[in-house]
């Protein structure tokens, strides 16, 4: 069967259109908001352009060689050409690329006054601990806030299995390995809300292990951190008693209350989060209630036990209580 060129072009364009669905500004290495990601983007453009030029040159050479009249090429001449174009030139190009790319691999300098953020990968969420120099650490989950224009040292840890930490718009990705601490030093260049994702298969809900990244102006970040470090005042709510009654505090912490579990995510700021279940669901009260009763429906393989026996109105009361936490 003969396929028309027009059909091929339409097919290619249609396929390319499907890839466009992945275009966004909040989780893309092509839309950097950090110094390192910007350098990686420039390097990517240089490498792709170079690869296209070399690919076209090799194809043109092949066409030229095939169309050449017989007996125009000699064995010695061919071998010499292969040595030069196939050995010496690629070696020189690769050495040049190595020298060009190595400085980007040098870790950014840090000073003792820089903010440390310890991030631990857990199945299937992120434990986040802000460690500002000279101040009390602050524990949070599934959201990372960083000040724009300041160097931040991310201490990356593996809690249970190997995870990988990647904020495509900020920097390259780094593995989180249990028993080992890896460091990623970053600096955001513009404020905004972005997204990171686990990029090492870590279990059934690996693809549902994301987090929000909020790059804030430095003053706003300082104010936010200071505000969070102050002990929050908690008004009594119907859901609070149910939260205690169902034993939620055995795994979850809510600062300002007696609940201090550390197995699951810290829920102190639950109501302020932009997503539920580490980037899995919109954080509505109905979704929170559904997640409490049947977490495995939303996150297969989740470590949190299901509460199917909990009446829905009680789940909703707890959801309202959690949604009010800020």
């Amino acid at each position: 069967m003969r396929v028309r060129p027009g059909t091929i072009v339409k097919g290619l364009c249609g396929t390319a259109l499907l890839f466009l669905s992945g275009c966004n500004r909040h989780q893309s290495a092509l839309s950097p908001f950090g110094d390192d990601a910007a350098r990686i983007q420039v390097m990517t453009v240089v490498l792709v352009a170079g690869a296209v030029v070399i690919g076209i040159a090799v194809a043109a050479l092949m066409v030229w060689a095939v169309r050449l009249p017989a007996n125009r090429l000699t064995l010695v001449g061919g071998e010499r050409f292969i040595l030069i174009a196939g050995g010496i030139v690629p070696s020189a190009v690769l050495l040049a690329l190595l020298i060009y790319s190595l400085p980007a691999m040098r870790p950014r300098d840090v000073s003792p006054g820089d903010l440390n953020v310890a991030v631990t990968g857990e199945q299937f969420w992120w434990r986040v601990r802000y460690e500002p120099p000279g101040a009390t650490p602050l524990t949070d989950a599934n959201e990372i806030r960083i000040p724009v224009g300041r160097t931040v040292r991310l201490r990356l840890l593996g809690g249970d299995v190997i995870h990988s930490f990647w904020i495509p718009g900020l920097a390259g990705k780094v593995d989180m390995i249990p028993g080992r601490e890896n460091t990623l030093v970053v600096r955001a260049t513009r404020p905004g809300v972005f997204r990171g994702q686990c990029t090492e298969f870590c279990g059934l809900s690996h693809a549902l292990m994301a987090f929000d990244v909020v790059a804030m102006p430095p003053e706003a970040f300082d104010a936010w951190l200071a505000g969070q470090q102050a002990a929050p005042a908690r008004a009594a709510a119907p859901g609070q008693a149910l939260f205690a009654q169902h034993g939620c505090g055995g795994c979850h912490t809510i600062r300002g209350t007696e609940h201090a579990g550390t197995i699951g995510p810290d829920l102190t700021r639950m109501g302020a989060r932009r997503s539920l279940g580490a980037g899995t669901l919109p954080p509505s009260e109905a979704n929170i209630a559904s997640f409490i009763r049947h977490p495995e429906h939303h996150k297969p393989g989740v470590r949190m036990p299901a509460f199917p026996h909990m009446p829905e109105r009680e789940a909703m009361a707890i959801a309202r209580y959690l949604k009010a936490l800020r």
């Binding site: 690769l94 050495l95 190595l98 020298i99 190595l102 400085p103 691999m105 040098r106 870790p107």
Partner: peptide
């Protein structure tokens, strides 16, 4: 190729 990183990655 093995030696060049020592020039750049002094860390």
């Amino acid at each position: 190729f093995t030696a060049v990183p020592v020039l750049f990655l002094t860390d």
